[in-house]
Computed example of a mutant assay.
Amino acid sequence: MTKAIEADRAQPRPTPGSGTRGAAVRVDAVDIRFGSFHAVREISLDIAAGEFLCLLGPSGCGKSTLLSALAGFVTPYQGALTVDGMPVTGPDPERGMVFQSHEALFDWLTVRQNVAFGPRMRGTSRAEQEELADEYLRLVGLRHCADRYPAQLSGGMRQRVQIARVLANQPRLVLMDEPFGALDAQTRQVLQEEMSRIWQASGCTVVFVTHDIDEAILLADRVAVMTAGPAASVKSVYPVDLPRPRDESHPAAVELRRRLRQDIGEEVRKALQDQGLDPEEER
């Protein structure tokens, strides 16, 4: 960690949230279809306020589709999505989305201006915009980069700016679609550790899509494994009963990794068989 980042975090700052301010989420028998294509089938999940839930599963199983429905970008064919008891009927600043690509940032705005964009669109004062931008840039360790442009930052730093921009809207639910998937292994590991700290500081509820079993174990309170698509559903849900920060060599982590690999392996084999391939014959 650089001295500049350490200095950012050492400065006194307001706590982003008081207690748990995350939202409770209910996914109730949700079906999502696109014409004749049946993406997800009768998915039901209850997510507690302030919980960190990871959605894990093989490619094409509808993880990102379900996340888009929670964001209000996709309307379910049937079933209900509610956040703190209120139906999801479209996008809302209280539900922030962090995408895999940092291209969601505005290249013509500085880092501070990117983070202040949401509060500015809500009509907050310039002083409050700057206060929120500074607060969340400190939280992600990038206060020293406030006057740079996205093109002047590394990929990992741009992802941290994107997280700060979402948090500056002070959402109660943060939806993350493989936000570290395009990063190199070393940067990804650093940001995984940072994400755990940022989540605990913000108090938000997080739903995090990943293909990475180790990432899910490192971050999640619970891991929901989805079946292979199409018409995917939830296969299993596992609590991650490990103290933070997580030790990947802990016997409970090793056992959970084994069970998750087994569940996902079954779904991958099923998907291959549905495509007319027999993975056993390939051996």
Rank of each mutant, 00 (worst) to 15 (best):
Arg222Cys: 09
Gly181Val: 02
Ala164Tyr: 06
Gly203Lys: 11
Gly155Ser: 05
Leu219Ile: 11
Arg197His: 13
Leu191Gln: 10
Arg246Gly: 07
Val254Lys: 10
Ala164Cys: 04
Gln152Ala: 14
Thr210Gly: 03
Val225Arg: 08
Ala224Trp: 09
Gln186Ile: 09
Val207Asp: 01
Glu215Asp: 11
Lys235Tyr: 05
Val209Ser: 04
Val240Gly: 00
Ala220Phe: 10
Ser154Ala: 02
Arg126His: 09
Asp184Arg: 05
Pro150Phe: 10
Ala232Leu: 07
Gln200Glu: 15
Arg158Asp: 04
Leu175Gly: 02
Met176Asp: 03
Pro245Ser: 09
Arg160Gln: 03
Phe208Tyr: 12
Arg138Leu: 06
Ile163Pro: 06
Glu135Thr: 12
Gly123Trp: 08
Gln262Pro: 00
Thr205Ser: 13
Gln262Ser: 14
Arg143Asp: 14
Ala228Ile: 05
Arg148His: 13
Glu130His: 12
Gln186Met: 11
Pro150Glu: 11
Arg160Cys: 03
Val190Gly: 11
Arg172Val: 10
Ala168Trp: 07
Gln152Ser: 06
Ala201Gln: 15
Ala228Gln: 06
Asp241Thr: 13
Asp134Thr: 14
Ala253Phe: 01
Leu175Thr: 06
Glu215Arg: 12
Glu194Asp: 15
Gly141Thr: 04
Ser125Thr: 14
Val174Arg: 05
Arg165Asn: 12
Asp212Gly: 09
Glu193Thr: 14
Arg246Trp: 04
Arg148Val: 00
Arg197Met: 13
Val190Leu: 15
Glu215Val: 10
Arg261Asp: 06
Lys235Ser: 15
Gly181Glu: 02
Arg143Lys: 14
